[in-house]
Computed example of a mutant assay.
Amino acid sequence: MSALTLHLLRGLAGLAWWLLLPRAQVHSRPPREQLGTMDITTGLTSCFLCSLLPAGWVLSHLESYKKQE
């Protein structure tokens, strides 16, 4: 075999361990409890505060960040 073939086979053998890992058994079913309005509001508000608020802060202060000190 050529050196390239040996190198490729060695690479494939290194990836084989990933295929042998046990996988979680995930089953989909209806939720045990329905989410209330307050739960949904809290979740959406926290997503807004954690992702959109910092991005808005940076965009609104972009001119001051561009200034060289």
Rank of each mutant, 00 (worst) to 15 (best):
K67N: 13
L35C: 03
G14F: 15
R32N: 10
C47N: 12
L62P: 08
L4S: 08
R32Y: 03
W18A: 05
K67V: 12
S46H: 10
L20N: 05
P22G: 08
Q68R: 12
P22D: 04
W57N: 07
W18C: 09
L53V: 15
H27E: 11
F48T: 14
A13K: 01
E69M: 03
I40M: 07
V26C: 09
L8Q: 07
S46V: 03
G43E: 14
E63I: 06
G14K: 06
K67T: 04
H27K: 00
C50V: 11
M1G: 03
M38P: 00
R32V: 12
R10I: 13
L35W: 06
H7K: 06
E69G: 15
L15P: 00
W18I: 09
T37D: 00
Y65K: 09
E33S: 09
L6A: 03
L15A: 06
L19N: 00
Q34V: 10
A55R: 07
L49I: 08
D39S: 12
S46Q: 02
L59V: 10
I40A: 08
T37Y: 04
A3S: 10
V26S: 10
L20T: 04
E69P: 13
S2D: 04
L19T: 02
M38H: 14
E63N: 14
A16T: 04
D39W: 01
E63H: 12
H7M: 09
L21C: 06
L12D: 06
S46G: 07
Q25K: 01
A55S: 14
Q25Y: 14
Q25A: 10
W17Q: 02
Y65S: 08
G56H: 00
L21T: 14
G11R: 13
E69A: 15
P54Q: 05
C47W: 12
I40H: 13
Y65W: 15
S46C: 03
R10W: 06
W18P: 00
L6R: 06
V26L: 13
I40R: 01
R10Q: 03
T45Y: 12
L20W: 03
C50Q: 11
